[in-house]
Amino acid sequence: MKQKHAAPVSVERLSVAYHKKPVLREITYASPEGELIGIIGPNGAGKSTFIKAVLGLLPLTGGTVHIYGQPYRATQQLIGYVPQRESVDWDFPTDVLDVVMMGRYGKLGWFKRPGKPDRDIAMACLDKVGMADFAKRQISQLSGGQQQRVFLARALAQDATIYFMDEPFAGVDAATEKAIIQVLQELRAHNKTVFVVHHDLQTVTDYFDSVILLNMRLIAAGPTKETFTVENLQKTYGGRLAILPRQFDLTMMG
């Protein structure tokens, strides 16, 4: 199923529109393997839309998506997804362990119920994000950072090869941010490819090996060192880039 020579994710002339208003235009991109890839761009640039389009959650108005050279439907098992925290109702009557077990559902088929092996995997994943003590906690009693870690644990329980994370760092505390980045680095160490929609320009060079700069069109994509430049950022953000990331200030001052 997995073809080594094909890129983990490749899209060709991908276009998406909401109510006839174009959100993404003709994106062509092929990702490297085993890297942490930041998806960067201003609000409304189509970052989440890009992820959702690749995941098949939105109808495409044009273009194609391939995962290791295969159409998405054939490769669902390879993909893990961390949606935005606000996308679900945290008052849903369930507990932390149960949410993480949901990551196993894709492997269970139509009728099988999650069993002890799935429970063990879920507990191990909770442990990885430092939430093992909260396994039996009702999800409405979690802080924002804890909710995010539960979602991350659920994605780990999917045991995927490619991960898509929609703003995992949005509104989390410093401890959670550290826990998340540790998990991301561990995923990379296992040669997983991880896409992360990211807002904080200050941390881009620390966190990501490659970046995708997006503003409805693909502005630039490639290794962070070469791609994450003042010139490209200005192209991406236009006049809206008020504060340049710290490292650029330093180089300019130095």
Binding site: K52, L55, G56, L57, R73, Q76, Q77, I79, Y81, P83, S87, V88, D89, F92, T94, V99, M102, Y105, G106, L108, W110, F111, R113, P114, R154, Q158
Partner: peptide, 22 residues
Amino acid sequence: LLFYKQLKLSAFDPAMAVALGI
């Protein structure tokens, strides 16, 4: 009884359910 997990996940997180192929 048969589709408890699918019904639960589609109620809690439909996007995730679609991504899992449900």
